[in-house]
Design a protein around this nucleic acid. Structure first.
Lengths: 327, 327
DNA sequence: CTGTTAGCGCCTTCAT
DNA sequence: ATGAAGGCGCTAACAG
């Protein structure tokens, strides 16, 4: 293995000068720089980052904590993070928590061992505020909820779901079922809040019996739709808290010969790629996934490098995308 | 920051003993071990991995090169990799190449700087065989093609597509269009080969005019389907090389009032989650995505740790999953 | 079984 | 502008 010493010898210089030529080229003569570069080529030198990392006590690595990388929305956020990290010279460590506390604990440990300079968290309920404030390393949330503290990025989940429901009400719907997520899920809570607000604004009484709790997965949307079909009177619209469950619901409806949107309208949330290409195309809320990841990544790297923590909650714009499924 | 020296002092031992107690507990007295653990707790010690990595010249990190993490199939392979890496004490660095040579080059550089102990490549045409053989670090392919060398994991792409086409032929189809991928894509080449073989076996002449080249994305499947509808005589079936393009095609067909499968049958490839929940549900080939990732990860770690390179190409079983879209 | 000691490769004062 | 030298925190011989 060739080291910086090999380069120094080949160039007839000291290791200190080689190091400078490589990291702060302006602090070195033009001629010296050329000699160094030539020597680097000659001995095919690659700096040993393990050594550099130890010496500088930085890993230039970001840990991304994802509840599930197979979820297209999170995959897109992650892609945005990776793109930005790449631009700024950082690498991305992938931590798939699978909503397991054990795994989160493990990955938290990883940062404490200096393997990452900071964390981007995609799950809003990862850590209670108290423990987060005490985290000995920078943490930024990319998909926050109402309670998520700065520095963080999110959309207005409450307002977005409010718009969705208002859209359905404007279409004449008054009995609107909701497919929510796990009871304690922060995004589910926010979006359900928007659902209730919209009903209230329209003078429609909230009926807890119309709210079902799924798991964010297609299958649970499928099952929820069957339950909804059994309700009487039968709802004329279903809002789902994410696109996957909406797609599962549409399938269940189609299987029962219930036509969407003419019999029942369905809406999703996220605007993953498949939403635009489902049959019928899904009305949903577009979250700027990649931008959310990118912004969170910027905030984190700024924090790491400037030592200055951004104290803002960045609320990115969402869009109600009306397609066929809402009539 | 607390170091191993702090622990040693708190325990009244040498740093060497502390190191042993932590890494090779069996080489140390029960009593010593207890003292060390207590001291670790007392000073809240976390080993500095940057130092350990330098000293041992290992990073316990694997670089995963993905053509696009937003692609659900690759996301699932990655999830399989992460799960196995976690079990064996490794971390996963995510490298999204976006099919860009510049990015691949960059990430290759990363491994040469010791930031990763090896690479798992998900794109079969990443590097020509020649350069791979010379790679100074372990590389394992998780989604190989016919030409991919060992150590690697793949399915029988040729045989799988052969089955798909044979299935359609058995249903009475003789004019079968294909939505392929980019001309040079290795998976596209393999699968197209299976398509031709199946036609040949049935005595159906291969018609290059029936083969369209997409980009693996839904939109390109959508566009391809429109072209297919304009063909005369019109094909009675469409095989797509992946599920996304098949879903895009189904949407285009539905938009034109063409019914699937009664007017035209459609098949996909991969069996991503959405395939089972599309309308109509998609006939496709199930690739064991997570298992492929897991196996590749095992091979890579074995190689890294044993210094013994597995010389086999592991061909995992696929399954033809017949659903509604093929009639 | 435990302690002493010598680096891993690099960066960074401190001199010159 | 360049060089000499020390040390980041840890592990691995080598002694005892």
């Amino acid at each position: 293995m060739t080291t910086i010493l090999d380069v120094a010898r080949a160039a007839g210089l000291s290791t200190a000068t080689v190091s400078r030529a490589l990291r702060e080229p302006e602090k070195v003569t033009e001629k010296t720089r050329a000699k160094v570069f030539k020597a680097v080529e000659a001995v095919n030198y690659r700096p040993n980052m393990l050594a550099r990392n130890l010496r500088t006590d930085k890993s230039f690595t970001l840990l991304v904590l994802v509840p599930g990388i197979a979820n297209p929305f999170f995959a897109n956020v992650t892609a945005g993070i990776e793109a930005t990290a790449w631009k700024r010279g950082y690498s991305v460590l992938l931590g798939d928590t699978r909503d397991s506390p054990e795994r989160e604990e493990h990955y938290a440990r990883l940062v404490e061992t200096r393997l990452a300079d900071g964390v981007i968290q995609l799950s809003p309920d990862y850590a209670p505020a108290e423990s987060r404030r005490q985290a000995p390393y920078p943490v930024v949330h990319a998909c926050g909820c109402e309670l998520t503290e700065a520095p963080s990025v999110r959309i207005d989940n409450v307002g977005a779901m409010h718009e969705v429901v208002a859209h359905l009400i404007a279409r004449g719907h008054r009995r609107i079922a909701a497919i929510s997520g796990p009871q304690a899920n922060a995004h589910a809570i926010d979006r359900l809040k928007g659902y209730r607000q919209a009903l209230e604004a329209a003078g429609i009484a909230f009926d807890p019996g119309l709210v079902l709790h799924g798991s964010f997965r297609m299958q649970s949307g499928f099952e929820a739709a069957r339950e909804i079909l059994a309700m009487s009177p039968r709802p004329t619209a279903i809002v789902s808290i994410n696109d996957e469950m909406a797609i599962g619901a549409i399938q269940a409806l189609a299987a029962q010969g219930v036509s969407v949107p003419s019999d029942i309208a369905v809406t999703g949330f996220d605007d993953i790629d498949f939403a635009a290409h489902s049959t019928p195309a899904l009305t949903t809320v577009r979250q700027p996934a990649a931008e959310m990841g990118a912004k969170a990544c910027e905030l984190l790297i700024d924090w790491i490098e400037d030592k200055a923590r951004d104290e803002a909650v960045h609320i990115l714009p969402h869009t109600l995308v009306v397609r066929e499924s809402s009539g």
